[in-house]
Design a protein around this nucleic acid. Structure first.
Length: 364
DNA sequence: AAGCCCCGCAACCGCCGTGGG
DNA sequence: TCCCACGGCGGTTGCGGGGCT
């Protein structure tokens, strides 16, 4: 199949390389409002000079609100090693076992140091050892019950949680990867990995709209975040000062679900969106959406002083922006976002974003 | 202090599988 | 049944950061 396949997009004139904060904001804003039903059409509709694939990758690997940032925990490493032993380079499958982690991230981690750990290679050139905080060095601050439980639940061996630096354990891991050791608690032959929640699956963002996976109007997605409407007067919006003012709260409170969905939407998606309009506007949801958006804005450098982090001065709701307990200490909001951040972590809403809660691992 | 070199990560590239017309 | 478009996946690359000499 795949005959006569045309390029995914006309690549002439498209931006390549690193994404700019502007592009990120556009992409996020667009997806928040319209979802990502059609990646190919998305960049055009969003006013991005990017390939659809590039947008998808950027969203999946970097901009998704449920991403867990920070170093891999020992448990996660353990899981990766074991799953890799069973599945091989099925990064997406492995990623489905590690909530908040992307296949790309896992692939990188594997190629950079887990592979060496499993099958150590002689260090070349005398081994210039760069200071490298191993994944076991720093535990990802996971303020959320969700993120804290997921890794635990996903652990397969009973050694989970232990530092796996001893040579003995390395040997064991090697044996396991060679298939010589029985894998407790999980039989890859009988286990249906497809049952796992795909971290990339749209329904993660729209769990309440099963018939419209890419509908942005999920009650758990940040879809109804403030400012999105205005921001998304795309593709003609000019990312000038007015945009930032919009982002800063001028458009706050508008529910995207009250808007007519884009033509690309299916009727079901549109209906679901409309149906959810009333549901998706609870204060908690708004707060969550704002929480996430604020974090993203912060990350993108669109906000100024860090003390504005939780309470933007121009925001009309400078009060209870966040429902969950405010991060005890927010020394660095950016790193906060990327490490524990806007994930549902601090979210206390009834439907803990589903995303990839520990329930996802119940299949194990 | 400066240059070199290595490592990690983000992003790109190309192929594959699937679904629709 | 064939063709096409699209999303997804895995491999690879290149740049930037940071440690070492």
């Amino acid at each position: 199949m795949g005959k006569g396949r045309a390029p995914c997009c006309a690549k002439v004139g498209l931006n390549k390389g690193s994404w700019t904060p502007e592009e990120d904001m556009r992409l996020v804003a667009y997806i928040q409002k319209y979802g990502h039903a059609n990646w190919r059409a998305l960049p055009k509709q969003a006013g991005l000079l990017r390939c659809g694939k590039s947008c998808r990758l950027r969203w999946i690997n970097y901009l998704r609100p449920d991403l867990k940032r920070g170093n891999f925990t020992a448990e996660e490493e353990e899981t990766i090693i074991k799953l890799h032993g069973m599945l091989g380079n099925k990064w997406s499958k492995i990623a489905s076992c590690l909530p908040g982690r992307t296949d790309n991230e896992i692939k990188n981690v594997w190629n950079t140091h887990l592979k060496k750990r499993v099958s150590p290679e002689p260090k070349k050139g005398g081994g210039k050892s760069k200071k490298k905080t191993t994944c076991t060095d720093v535990l990802v601050p996971s303020p959320s019950p969700a993120s804290s439980t997921t890794t635990t639940n996903c652990s397969i061996g009973d050694s989970a949680g232990e530092q796996s630096n001893t040579s003995k354990e390395e040997e064991e891991e090697e044996e396991e990867t060679a298939g010589k050791v029985e894998i407790p608690m999980l039989d890859p032959c009988s286990f249906d990995f497809d049952m796992l929640v795909d971290p990339v699956a749209p329904e993660l963002y729209c769990p309440a709209v099963s018939t419209a996976p890419t509908s942005p109007c999920s009650s758990t997605s940040p879809a109804c975040a403030r400012g999105v409407d205005a921001l998304l007067d795309l593709p003609d919006i000019d990312l000038g000062p007015e945009l930032w003012s919009i982002i800063d709260g001028d458009g706050y409170g508008a529910s995207v679900c009250t808007d007519a969905p884009p033509p690309a939407w299916s009727n079901a998606a549109a209906a679901a969106c409309q149906a959810n309009a009333t549901v998706a506007t609870t204060s908690q949801e708004e707060a969550k959406a704002e929480w996430w958006l604020e974090d993203l804005e912060k990350e993108l450098g669109l906000w100024g002083p860090t003390d504005d982090y939780h309470c933007h001065p121009s925001g009309p709701q400078c009060q209870p922006a966040r429902v969950g307990p405010p991060p005890a200490v927010v020394e660095d909001p950016v790193s906060c976002y990327f490490q524990g951040g806007p994930t549902p972590a601090t979210w206390q809403g009834p439907e803990t974003p589903a995303v990839i809660t520990s329930n996802s691992m119940d299949y194990l």
